[in-house]
Design a protein around this nucleic acid. Structure first.
Lengths: 208, 208
DNA sequence: AAGAAAGATTGCGCATTGAGCAAGTTTATT
DNA sequence: AATAAACTTGCTCAATGCGCAATCTTTCTT
């Protein structure tokens, strides 16, 4: 089933990563607006054309790591028991994902990501990356719901969860007190009680 | 304070709208992928260059109406009393916005919007339009919160609320049973109780 | 191990597009 | 009516996404 990736696949992943990292580095060094596809390709020792074979735009290259994380999260969701409550499924998946080696990321990566935040036009591309799996996540969630309006409810669950994950992560990047895992947990707890004003304080207090 | 817009401003708004509508119509007619800036400009009787003066891409033109709605919603949020509970502020603003003449939209518009849904790449641009005001909404919300973690909480509130609004609206477009207002109300109620499994059924039942 | 088949990289060319600039046109001001 | 301010347009260019065909690499077959 899970055959070890051959040399071909490994090489591909390597250049993909190289392109992603080159993009991130150059964007942080020279500013996101002076980032050109040609430069990224050069930095990764491939041709401009090859870049296009991997990514359809420099922004996609920039947020490739988010895409990977999100695809991985979808897998984790799939692996949760079918009878678990939906929000629990999502929370646990998010926690596993965060725990999986990305809890204490490389400081250089952190700094670069913080640089990127400055450029407001990039936010749009990041949310785009998230929106890519929104539907997949919803269809994964739907069979776990019972009652009326399953479709609407699954889509709202997926969308709000992903938004929360994105915002909590971003907030932690800009403002890293404590662990990322803690930030994600706090965010999810907050989102879980969006509509109940009294519980906010309690929810936050409970996170410490 | 609010001077009536002169001829100049009215003309500008007119061409902006013309461009938006031309884009929407052409996208629905010929498919979103065969949509070219030149064609949009022609259909609106302006030059290609002028199109660029109004919109920075065809997708921005396509989702101009969302942008307008969202800016309007920000105003409505600003006008809510300062002591209202945050989620109530958002719900009321959304309801007002929906009630403001867009509750029973033009069937042609609806059909076109439904066509657009087919093209998956466009979702990214729609969420981009929503993300544009995410920060503004958060900074508007922040002063209405008390306690700890005001920044994180306001950002999560803004993000989840906007996601919900987007998904509920989109769901209603694809699936218009009842009024849009009803769909938005239901969506917000659902989002308000994301984490509490037992309350889902009650929340939905309460919407009928 | 040799050769065929499948897959990846590259260069070339073209269509689309976003934007700066300057000249011409329309609206606002006085 | 004259002047100023704002808008439109055509021209031009750099950047980009992608189809195509040639070449090189990995994998599969026998």
């Amino acid at each position: 089933m899970a055959e070890p990736p051959g040399l071909r696949a490994r090489k591909k992943e390597a250049t993909r990563l190289a392109l992603h990292e080159a993009a991130l580095r150059l964007a942080a060094e020279q500013g996101a607006d002076r980032l050109h596809v040609e430069a990224i390709a050069d930095a990764a020792n491939v041709s401009r054309r090859t870049f296009s074979n991997y990514f359809s735009s420099k922004e996609e290259a920039l947020f490739y790591d988010d895409a990977v994380r999100l695809r991985r999260m979808l897998e984790l969701v799939r692996d949760r028991p079918a009878d678990e409550a939906p929000w629990t499924v999502l929370s646990r998946a998010a926690e596993q994902l965060t725990a999986e080696g990305l809890d204490e990321p490389d400081p250089a990566w952190l700094a670069r990501r913080r640089q990127l935040r400055a450029h407001p036009g990039l936010l749009a591309h990041q949310v785009a990356a998230y929106s890519t799996i929104e539907r997949d996540l919803a269809t994964e969630l739907a069979p776990r719901l019972t009652g009326a309006d399953v479709e609407l409810r699954s889509r709202i669950l997926a969308a709000t969860f992903l938004s929360t994950l994105r915002v909590a992560t971003q907030h932690w990047i800009e403002n890293p007190r404590g662990s990322l895992l803690g930030a994600v947990r706090a965010g999810l707890r907050l989102a879980a009680s969006n509509g109940t004003p009294g519980s906010w304080v309690r929810a936050v207090a409970g996170s410490s």
